[in-house]
Computed example of a mutant assay.
Amino acid sequence: MVSKAWMLGLCLALFASIAAAAQDRGPVTNLPLPRFVSLKAAEGNARRGPSLSHRIDWIYTRRDMPLEITAEYGHWRRVRDRDGAGGWIHYSLLSGVRTVLVEQDLLPLRMRPDANAPEVARMAMGVVARMGACNRDWCELTAGGYSGWAPKTAIWGVRPDEERD
């Protein structure tokens, strides 16, 4: 026979796990939080709060810039960039197309996800590249007509544990 205290403990543990899972999802989209997206528009205003009446704190002027969504409210998404700056941006200015920011100068792109694979190109620090597949340690990047694999540690816009086909 199961005791009431044991059942209560089980219920509380289950509730805590459900609450934690709910906090990891956006209340509007039910998509994971945080998550990476890119700036769809050539310009996007990051506001202090989630409405047009809030002051503009930051203006992003680089199409395809990777941004991290940290919160949702109605049609607004709170984002931050690689430097931690950001604010609330209207969802219509964001895209699910994944891009990353190169954080290492002259980053070698490899033919395969292997440090000993032949180098196919180099990317300058600050380049915004489209992200393709990712395994545990490497991501496939495309920019300027070149495509190759780079270590996750050299780019911003992907979680360390993220894998993509």
Score class of each variant (00 low, 15 high):
residue 101 L to V: 01
residue 68 E to M: 15
residue 77 R to T: 07
residue 25 R to Q: 15
residue 161 D to Y: 00
residue 57 D to E: 14
residue 131 M to D: 07
residue 74 G to I: 01
residue 120 V to S: 05
residue 74 G to L: 11
residue 93 L to V: 06
residue 57 D to F: 09
residue 64 D to H: 11
residue 133 A to Y: 01
residue 144 G to D: 05
residue 27 P to V: 13
residue 31 L to I: 03
residue 60 Y to V: 08
residue 140 E to L: 10
residue 8 L to N: 07
residue 103 E to S: 12
residue 147 S to W: 00
residue 36 F to Y: 14
residue 88 W to Q: 03
residue 41 A to I: 00
residue 133 A to C: 08
residue 60 Y to D: 14
residue 160 P to M: 05
residue 105 D to Y: 01
residue 162 E to P: 15
residue 54 H to S: 14
residue 126 G to F: 04
residue 130 R to E: 14
residue 87 G to S: 07
residue 60 Y to A: 13
residue 107 L to M: 04
residue 132 G to I: 02
residue 163 E to P: 15
residue 95 S to Y: 14
residue 141 L to K: 00
residue 138 W to H: 05
residue 146 Y to H: 08
residue 11 C to N: 02
residue 125 M to Q: 11
residue 88 W to V: 01
residue 140 E to H: 05
residue 34 P to G: 02
residue 21 A to V: 07
residue 111 M to N: 11
residue 62 R to P: 09
residue 118 P to C: 03
residue 125 M to P: 00
residue 131 M to N: 01
residue 154 A to T: 09
residue 13 A to K: 02
residue 85 A to V: 10
residue 73 Y to H: 12
residue 115 A to V: 10
residue 62 R to M: 06
residue 134 C to N: 03
residue 27 P to S: 13
residue 134 C to M: 01
residue 30 N to L: 13
residue 61 T to W: 00
residue 10 L to F: 14
residue 163 E to G: 06
residue 56 I to E: 13
residue 8 L to D: 11
residue 93 L to Y: 04
residue 14 L to D: 09
residue 115 A to G: 10
residue 62 R to C: 02
residue 156 W to P: 14
residue 80 R to C: 10
residue 65 M to H: 08
residue 81 D to M: 08
residue 138 W to N: 03
residue 8 L to Q: 11
residue 114 D to E: 08
residue 23 Q to D: 15
residue 5 A to I: 15
residue 92 S to D: 14
residue 67 L to G: 04
residue 84 G to R: 06
residue 159 R to E: 14
residue 15 F to E: 09
residue 16 A to D: 14
residue 38 S to E: 01
residue 156 W to N: 13
residue 157 G to D: 08
residue 29 T to E: 05
residue 127 V to I: 08
residue 152 K to Y: 00
residue 151 P to T: 06
residue 116 N to H: 15
residue 92 S to N: 13
residue 98 R to G: 11
residue 145 G to S: 01
residue 89 I to R: 00
residue 12 L to S: 05
residue 33 L to C: 04
residue 93 L to K: 05
residue 161 D to Q: 08
residue 21 A to F: 07
residue 9 G to D: 15
residue 148 G to L: 02
residue 8 L to F: 09
residue 17 S to H: 05
residue 17 S to E: 12
residue 85 A to L: 12
residue 162 E to I: 03
residue 119 E to N: 14
residue 1 M to C: 06
residue 45 N to R: 14
residue 129 A to W: 00
residue 130 R to N: 09
residue 140 E to G: 03
